[in-house]
């Protein structure tokens, strides 16, 4: 199921990540900022794309601002943003 709404999740606090997502038309467009870009930029991008794929999101504009979050935290924030964007959040 595709995204319906623009949505966000997470915070800008240390060890967290802030994720914004909106419906797109041309695949996944990912904009990533991270305090550990050099050390983990590629790993983060892979994790984000992996979560989107698991949730069957094929077209979306995604912005991730990472404040040194562990991968399980980033994955959680992306998932929550997607669920909110699909209107599935409880």
């Amino acid at each position: 199921m595709e995204m319906k709404l623009r949505a966000s999740a997470g915070t800008m606090e240390s060890s967290d990540a802030y994720v914004e997502i909106e419906p797109g038309t041309d695949g996944i467009k990912l904009q990533l900022e991270s305090v550990v870009m050099g050390q983990f930029g590629e790993a983060i991008e892979k994790a984000v794309r992996n979560v989107l794929q698991e949730l069957s999101v094929e077209n979306a504009n995604v912005r991730v601002v990472d404040r040194g979050a562990l991968e399980c935290v980033i994955r959680a924030r992306v998932e929550t943003a997607v669920l909110r964007g699909k209107g599935d959040a409880q």
Binding site: G10, V73, A76, R77, E79, T80, L83
Partner: peptide
């Protein structure tokens, strides 16, 4: 609530 649920599950 939704965010915490996913975060705790992942933790």
């Amino acid at each position: 609530k939704d965010a915490a649920r996913v975060l705790v599950r992942n933790t």
